[in-house]
Simulated assay, not measured.
Amino acid sequence: MKQEDIVIYACVIIGAGIGLMLGSAFPGVLVGLGIGYLIKFSFKKED
């Protein structure tokens, strides 16, 4: 498993947790997924 994939999974889990605290998990998952892909893209640019 690549480091970039772990970052995406972690962002999704964190987003789901925040979404559950705010009352709806699914939008939090989507926001976390988007943030995870942005972070993954920034890691690729550095290489």
Rank of each mutant, 00 (worst) to 15 (best):
M1T: 02
M1L: 10
M1D: 06
M1S: 14
M1E: 10
K2I: 10
K2A: 10
Q3I: 15
Q3E: 13
Q3L: 15
D5Y: 10
D5L: 06
I6T: 13
I6S: 10
V7P: 01
V7C: 14
V7R: 08
I8L: 10
I8M: 05
I8Q: 11
A10M: 15
A10L: 14
A10D: 07
A10R: 08
A10S: 04
A10T: 14
C11D: 06
V12C: 13
V12D: 01
V12Q: 08
I13M: 13
I14W: 02
I14V: 05
G15C: 06
G15A: 04
G15N: 09
G15I: 07
G15E: 02
A16W: 05
G17R: 03
I18L: 10
I18H: 04
G19A: 11
G19N: 09
L20Q: 07
L20T: 07
L20S: 05
L20A: 13
M21E: 07
M21W: 13
G23K: 06
G23C: 05
S24D: 09
A25G: 00
A25L: 11
A25R: 05
F26P: 02
F26D: 02
F26W: 10
F26M: 08
V29T: 01
V29G: 00
V29D: 00
L30V: 11
L30Q: 04
V31A: 14
V31G: 03
G32K: 05
G32C: 09
G32Q: 07
G34W: 03
G34N: 05
G34C: 04
I35G: 02
I35N: 00
Y37Q: 12
Y37V: 12
Y37F: 15
L38M: 14
I39L: 13
K40H: 11
F41D: 12
F41P: 00
S42C: 06
F43E: 09
K44Y: 12
K44D: 09
K44L: 13
K45V: 08
K45D: 11
E46H: 14
D47F: 07
D47S: 13
D47M: 10
D47N: 10
